[in-house]
Design a protein around this nucleic acid. Structure first.
Length: 246
DNA sequence: GCCAACGTTGGC
DNA sequence: GCCAACGTTGGC
């Protein structure tokens, strides 16, 4: 009974909001890199807000002046929120716990694996090197945003899906046609004081700054978008509460 | 542990 | 393609 998966539905990304989320990340060794067939759309969407970056770097020069740009290709930085579970929980006999402190202790880029939901996967595929993500602790005593990380390597196949001893093994994903993806991330900061879900919900009430925030509207989505305005607002809150440490 | 809110499966 | 039954997420 434990299966995780998300079959059917296959590649229809695009339709944004209709679907929900998937979960957390779990850690497993993964040889990074490989090519992916970015088949379908990666776009995942984002209704409102952000100037969605054009992945291919087509236009968008307009935004460059107002947003921090990410290196190389000159596209604008996008922001995300990714959930992981900081408390022990066993999936197929493996503990999937992964906290901000676990990430901080890594010396190599960490593959964000175990994502088994198409909307979340499409968000991973839309990420660009240099993008920033909030690290969110879920399914725990005090759920909320606890830190930030940076996307250091764009999507590649999630090879853990093909490993029968991995917690999120998915027999339906074939090595010659990988269904799931990872991005590699690195620790950037830990908040001096976490921003709890309760507070996020307050800031997400009607008329408040996070009214449109994706994760508040689709609470089960484990990899969601954060608009530049939402990101900046939240970083203002972080600053007021003692900032971050590296 | 409960359970609301969702996602997936599979019969028809 | 519909939709009932079942599975999962994740806050509480």
């Amino acid at each position: 009974m434990v299966k995780r998966k998300a079959n059917k539905l296959e590649e229809n990304s695009n339709t944004p909001d209709l679907r929900r989320s998937t979960r957390r990340k779990q850690t497993f060794p993964t040889p990074a890199t490989e090519e992916v067939k970015a088949s379908e759309s990666d776009a995942s969407q984002a209704p409102k807000s952000e100037p969605a970056k054009s992945k291919a770097a087509t236009k968008d020069s307009a935004q460059q002046s107002t947003l921090p740009k990410c290196e190389a290709d000159g596209t604008a930085t996008s922001y995300w929120l990714m959930k992981a579970e900081p408390e022990s929980r066993f999936e197929r006999g493996v503990d999937v716990k992964f906290s901000i402190d676990d990430l901080a202790s890594r010396t190599e880029p960490e593959p964000w694996d175990g994502i088994r939901n198409y909307v979340a996967r499409n968000n991973l595929r839309a990420m660009k090197k240099g993008d920033i993500a909030f690290f969110y602790h879920s399914n725990c005593k005090e759920p909320g945003i606890v830190g930030t990380m940076e996307i250091v390597q764009e999507h590649s196949p999630d090879l853990s899906a093909h490993n029968s001893s991995a917690p999120y093994y998915d027999a339906s994903s074939k090595p010659d046609n990988p269904k799931w993806s990872v991005v590699h991330v690195k620790f950037r900061s830990k908040l001096k004081q976490a921003i709890g879900l309760k507070e996020l919900k307050e800031m997400g009430k009607s008329g408040q700054p996070l009214e449109q925030m994706q994760v508040l509207k689709q609470s089960r989505l484990s990899v969601s978008r954060v608009s530049p305005a939402e990101f900046q607002y939240l970083m203002g809150v972080v600053k007021e509460r003692g900032g971050e440490s590296n």
